[in-house]
Simulated scan of single mutants.
Amino acid sequence: MTTPDQHASVRYLVDDVQAAVDYYLRHFGFHVNTNSAPAFADVIRGPLRLLLSGPASSGARATPGDLAGPGRNRIHLTVDDLDAEIDRLRQRGVAFRSEVTSGPGGRQILVADPAGNLIELFESAH
């Protein structure tokens, strides 16, 4: 799992990754960490890492059981070994909202907190 000294990441689904990158850089003082437009980019400002996922990214895939719209955004926790984390959580009785999916940046799975807010566990391909 991420440690307290790492960035806190939030994923936003966007229609145009480059336009979103330009907007956050121009208006809010973010800087580019990774830019794989048109699929994905991440920008950083202080401790916040904002993940911008375009329609071609794995993060923009429909959430199982949900239609498009609000509720698809989620916090994003990076793990070193996704399979080990899944096993650990299953042993604790945590239910998953998706199967593992793979995309340009790595592998991920979704969990929902007790209120239904989504948490993405993500293992980077790099």
Rank of each mutant, 00 (worst) to 15 (best):
S53M: 11
A68H: 07
S57N: 05
G71R: 01
R88P: 08
A56K: 15
G59Q: 11
S53C: 10
L82C: 08
L67V: 14
A68E: 10
A95V: 14
G71E: 00
T63I: 09
L89H: 13
L52A: 12
R92S: 08
D81H: 10
A62P: 13
S57D: 15
R88I: 02
A95F: 13
R74Q: 15
A60Y: 08
H76E: 12
A56D: 15
D66T: 00
A84Q: 13
A62I: 09
D80P: 02
S57C: 03
A56R: 15
A95S: 10
G59K: 02
G59E: 04
A56V: 08
L82Q: 05
L77G: 00
T63Y: 14
G93P: 02
D83Y: 01
Q91P: 06
G59T: 02
R90K: 05
H76C: 04
R97L: 07
V94A: 09
H76Q: 11
P64E: 08
A62R: 07
G69W: 10
I86A: 12
R90F: 01
N73A: 07
G59M: 06
F96V: 02
P70I: 15
R61M: 06
L52I: 12
S57F: 04
G65R: 02
L67Q: 10
R88E: 12
A84V: 11
E85W: 00
V79H: 04
A56T: 14
L82T: 13
G65Q: 03
G69N: 11
G93V: 03
G54S: 01
V79L: 00
S53V: 03
Q91E: 12
R61W: 04
D66E: 02
G71H: 02
R97Y: 07
P55F: 06
R72N: 13
G71I: 00
D87T: 12
A60E: 05
R90M: 04
A68L: 11
P70R: 13
A68S: 08
I75P: 10
T78M: 10
H76V: 07
G59R: 02
D81Y: 06
F96G: 09
G71P: 02
L82K: 05
L77I: 15
D66Q: 04
V79K: 03
D83W: 01
G69M: 12
L82R: 06
V79T: 09
L52G: 09
V94D: 09
I75C: 07
E85S: 06
R61F: 00
R97S: 15
L67F: 15
P64N: 05
D80E: 13
A62T: 10
L52T: 11
A62Y: 00
D83V: 03
G59N: 13
A95C: 05
